[in-house]
Design a protein around this nucleic acid. Sequence first.
DNA 1: CCATTGAATGAAAGTGACTGTCACATGGTC
DNA 2: GACCATGTGACAGTCACTTTCATTCAATGG
Lengths: 211, 211
Amino acid sequence: MTFMTAPRTTPADRPPLGLRERKKIKTRQAIRTATYALIEEQGYDATTIEQIADRAEVSPSTVFRYFPTKEDIVITDEWDPVMMAELRARPRDESWADVLRHVMRTALDLSLAEEPEVTRLRTRLGVEVPAVRARMMESMASTGRLLREALAERSGRDPGSLELRVFAMSVMGGLMEVSQYWAETGHRDDIRDLVDRALDVMEHGLPGGKP
Amino acid sequence: MTFMTAPRTTPADRPPLGLRERKKIKTRQAIRTATYALIEEQGYDATTIEQIADRAEVSPSTVFRYFPTKEDIVITDEWDPVMMAELRARPRDESWADVLRHVMRTALDLSLAEEPEVTRLRTRLGVEVPAVRARMMESMASTGRLLREALAERSGRDPGSLELRVFAMSVMGGLMEVSQYWAETGHRDDIRDLVDRALDVMEHGLPGGKP
DNA sequence: CCATTGAATGAAAGTGACTGTCACATGGTC
DNA sequence: GACCATGTGACAGTCACTTTCATTCAATGG
């Protein structure tokens, strides 16, 4: 889910990171922080890679070593593995809509708790900047592929079947629209409620009547 | 629907076009033809605007006057108005799935009859070239906006409501996946059958069981 | 503690999409 | 045929992104 923020807390397990690794993490974070700040100050288009590099105190080449495109600096997310784990952990007899409800709620709670402003900035840029929106949709498509793998596992279906693929992408399309709606309405609503309502629509159809 | 081809036949009504207008149409077509040919020969990335301009015998600036981006040369479509008209013409008591089935079938029949190779090339590029896919999704989103307007008219619903927006984008996401699937499987299937199956999934859920 | 090695960085030059400006030419109109 | 509006080409510029290569510095083995 491209509009959520990456977790900042490192799981305390795993061998302690070497100096090299720690530096990389700091650089990565410096680039993102610089980018967010500059965008708040000047807007997305007016912010160049060179400015970002200057403020993050790295060279432009380094920026591109960390992020393949300018849009990626804004939207990169490391949530997919978390969500996939959550997805697999849900009981097998739960309906797909309830599964997604839980997974999305967990992810959103974390994201909003960690960096609420960044989460909002991202969705806003998704509305305002076509290139960012495009990159978000790409990311949505790849999350869709993960989703269909998980759903295939759960249901024993063929993950490559048209039916499952359509289903997964259709769900992702609906969720993408939630993000757009949330930002367009000035983040007034609780996005978790919006997600619930969206999943209701996708599960039961539009409320009140078929045609 | 971004993966269809634009109609070449001009409706015989309307006042006869002046020389200027006719030239514009010819230039536009020359640019697109040159682009398709070059892409077939060399691939998308290897094809530059300068080459396209050369082959179409116009200047690079002119290419950009006709198409805002390189991707647009490939995917530009003039189908939305046609589809909207068709959409509004369908009887009011028809289910939305049947409406879309008819509209999509009409559009696909026309598109495949007019320029079958171009239709296939487009969808293939949608799979192979991320930038093209991104532009297709953008176009899909704007078709989604039109779709929700039409659905709102038909049902008397608020076109701005979250529910309708989610519904429309969810449908578009599913249809986008059909295009991807069709191209990824080498255009072996009849795309109209694929659309039917996709609409079945979106109307009734995945076949055989809920969870 | 030092030497070696491999990864990460920076500097620099290049490519190509896209923008903006301006002079020129060409179709439409009287 | 003269006037006007619109479309076009030439040109210069910006910026994202790539590639190459020399340098630096953390990691590792002795």
